[in-house]
Amino acid sequence: MSADQFVQYFISGLTMGSIYAIVGLGFTIIYAVTRIINFAQGEFVMLGGMLSFYLIKSAGIPLAPALILSVLITVVIGAIMYLLAIRTARHASVVSLIIITIGAAVFFRGIAGEIFPWGVDIVRPPYFTGSQSIAFLGAYVHPQAFWIIGTTVVVMILLHLFLTYTMVGKALKACAISPVSASMVGINPRTMALIAFTLAAALGGISGVVMAPLTLMSYSSGFMLGLKGFVAASIGGFKSPVATVIGGFTLGIVESLAVGIDWGPFTSAYKDVIAMTVLLLILLIRSGRLAEEERMS
């Protein structure tokens, strides 16, 4: 592996890692506040990407408003999902709520395959700023990749500031640490859960519109995107936005370098196996501390 190639692999890993990270952020927020693993998170991403294509191509709306509108629609869908499906199941255990999110995921996928005029085909919304790749430290980078990495970092910082410095953010954090004590000081956990779902849907929508030009999108893309985002969130420990993004970057770079090392099992054929093994090792190494945390909560 030459130095140029290393840079190329690294940047490629960062791009993929950003995608995983921004999807993972949605998982983290919902999990922290409600302890629900939201299986519909990947579908939010899919909806964001598909809606942006629909609005630009079929409805003819210019790029920037179309992107914002796609995210807004996804947010509304996320909020409706929470109000109709999660909130109404008041007495359900967390595992039942998780099954509800699985049901919602299947439902969204089915709807997406039905309502869009291109049905089940793959689509690609236009690139934000052209497709001429940029030479960067000896590597070539697609302009859209900069958008993806940039969006992830900006979203991470904004989210961090939101959680640290705003009243609502602090309330979310309090709810994540202990719902019982949070409600004692007057924070309504159900309002917080609604905010968490809305935020997660927004994150899903944003990641969808930003990545779709590069990764392409079809009605069935959601599950696998969600799976990778979930892994990123778990490497980060479902804690802070920063930890999740680091988790995503780790996953992306491991996958990318596994292709580059090209020795023994470290080839493209086994890159997912390697990534999952790294995840297992990280979890097992941290298992002592993780068990402690679980007990605390």
Partner: peptide, 13 residues
């Protein structure tokens, strides 16, 4: 794999 979102690494190789 099916889930891959980018082939830059493979193509670099």
């Amino acid at each position: 794999a099916d889930a891959d979102t980018s082939m830059i690494s493979q193509m670099t190789h």
